[in-house]
Amino acid sequence: MSPVETSAVQGRGELRDQPPPTRSRRTTPRGTLFANELLTTFRRWRTLALLAVLAAVPILVGIAIKIETSDGGGVGGGRGGGGEGPAFISQVTNNGLFLVFTALAATLPFFLPMAIGVIAGDAIAGEANAGTLRYLLVAPAGRTRLLLTKYATVMTFCVVATLVVAISALAVGALLFPLGDLTTISGTQITFAEGLGRAFLIALVVAASLTGVAALGLFVSTLTGSGIAAMATTVGLLITVQILDQIPQLHALQPYFFSHYWLSFADLMREPVYWDELQKNLGLQALYAAVFGSAAWARFTTKDITA
């Protein structure tokens, strides 16, 4: 369900909690609330620290590969088989652009969703914890709009976090390794410009892969008044699902885990692109966003705000 539909369904009961507002006050510029939220979120030290950690991952990976291959050998060359480590790692030494894909593959299973979990879990519960939630609601924005704004902020963080990883990886890759035309995993050649385009597309797909976690985190955040509890629950759920996704006996359930198709972003590096799993991934994320988004809405618009 799109945000527009969500807000169209709401109305009625929610307004009972507030004094009937006058029309003039309601027309607060839309952007203001969102801009304020963005500023608040991105000015927090916690957010900046998370982004710094994410930016550090490609640097570490890049330096590690550089050191390991400085004697001229390939990655994992001594072990014969190669192919260990995150996806694309064996191509990085020949083309720095592959560090972008390696870094995203390395951060997507844990670092990125954990960062999202922290921001999303904190979104509502953190305000309640700090006692600022009721002041936010005093502003004539309405609970649905506040929730949507919070979700938009978390989504913005998803995109920013992914781009931070990608850009840091691109910078490190360009510094340490040669750049140039690259070979897709299907063995065909594409130009560097097209490779960059695909890298950008992959970053967007990775960001979109996180919408499910973001919605889940936001829902958990509406359940509790403690920011820490919400963050811990979200990250805990994330780890649980990742573990369950590894258990072969659960293969019937696994296609419905939000993390199941995460690595399908690599399919964008095939030639021609293999859309099957990418579509499944995006569909699944949309489903999670709809289910937990509407659950968060149902919870948030009906709960008593005491803090």
Binding site: M1, V9, Q10, G13, A295, W297, A298, T301
Partner: peptide, 8 residues
């Protein structure tokens, strides 16, 4: 309101 997520 909880019907919405269930319906989805």
């Amino acid at each position: 309101r909880y019907v919405v997520p269930v319906a989805v």
